[in-house]
Design a protein around this nucleic acid. Structure first.
Lengths: 205, 205
DNA sequence: AAGATATTTTAAACGCTGTTCAACTTTCGA
DNA sequence: TCGAAAGTTGAACAGCGTTTAAAATATCTT
């Protein structure tokens, strides 16, 4: 009697249909076009039907936030694979920003939007965030242990890196810059190099 | 015939009444309570009347964003007044974060919210942001010129500082942390010290 | 195969939102 | 005092997220 399994599979497929429609609407017509009615139209359902798949609209964004992290893990992990610890740190930073600028909607859900943030605060622990942080933390620890950057609290140093790249991404994605966007991106990159070279232990450079 | 001046003054007072009501609603009952009807109720007007003072709701937030910067300038400037260049930099960072955590709604309008961001992108230049950046930039330049931090592109270095503190503030305000909020704040502060001491030129410490 | 049961979907409604606009009221200068 | 200008109102509009009884569909049991 595999019909129950098939039903579950179909439910999951419809859930995906809803999530894809929501993200497509956002990417194509902007955030304010992501309405329950538009999503329902896109998948040829009536608005009410969506509520048998998601408790409310915020849950749709929360689910998208998880989905977005899947992409992100791959990006981050493969950036941390090769090169010296110092190069790995630089790669992680660059991969992080590349992801943010190439997937602004996804980055928004993951790290900026208040609606996802509320659900995160309500849940017990932000495990996807933790998992991503661990990739960075492992690399920072490596760089510290092998003397590429000054020894200290590896968690605190990782937080510093994270805050830095997130600051760059979120200032630009939310249009908080003084020079043009391209100039700002270049200055931010230069600023990052400035910090990295200050951190690099001279005897190992 | 000063009556025209008095009328202008009254208009400005009503504008302020609206802005204060909007901010009070936000601080007291949360963002979703800031509706045109609630604002109108609070100042004993009808909703339509508000539209002779502001073109639309976003303009109210945009005006609040400017108003918030006034507070911010004082905070920032007085932090940059005393001590060695290195101490000034630390003071600016701490004042920045203090402002963000003590005025989360204002900080949101200034540096995070998409609604303010849209209006900023539409306008010609983000002059309030520039003005605040200049305070930081002047201090960074001072620290560079006097050899407290490595010489380099002072704008890029200032961007780096800004991105860093904004990253800390926005990750915490939007509930993107892994440990408890207090622990995260402490780790972030430690991370900032780590970076600052890496930047500090040893011969001058 | 037929009937009972569970699930899914619909259509309509509710209360809310931002916004507009003709009509009304108030204020003001001549 | 009159006429114009400015300010305010109240009703309406289209849209929103969400709920719910009823209808439709699919599944399980006999």
């Amino acid at each position: 009697m595999g019909s129950i399994e098939r039903r579950e599979r179909e439910r999951e497929e419809t859930r995906q249909l809803i999530l894809n429609a929501a993200l497509n609407l956002w990417m194509k017509d902007g955030f304010e076009s992501v309405t329950i009615r538009n999503i329902a139209d896109a998948i040829e359902y009536t608005p009410g039907a969506i509520y048998s798949y998601f408790k409310d609209k915020d849950e749709i964004f929360y689910a998208l936030h998880f989905q977005a992290f899947e992409h992100f893990f791959d990006t981050l992990r493969s950036a941390a694979l090769f090169g010296s610890p110092m190069e790995r740190l630089k790669n992680i930073g660059e991969a992080y920003l590349k992801f943010a600028f190439e997937n602004p909607q996804r980055y928004d859900l993951m790290f900026i939007s208040a609606t996802s943030g509320k659900k995160i605060a309500e849940s017990d622990g932000w495990h996807v965030g933790e998992k991503a942080f661990d990739v960075l933390h492992a690399t920072v620890k490596l760089a510290m242990d092998e003397g590429y950057i000054p020894k200290g609290d590896s968690k605190a140093a990782s937080m510093m890196f994270w805050a830095h790249v997130h600051g760059i991404a979120s200032l630009i994605l939310r249009d908080r810059y003084i020079y043009s966007m391209e100039t700002t991106k270049k200055l931010m990159k230069k600023g990052m190099d400035y910090m990295m070279s200050a951190l690099a232990q001279k005897e190992l450079a």
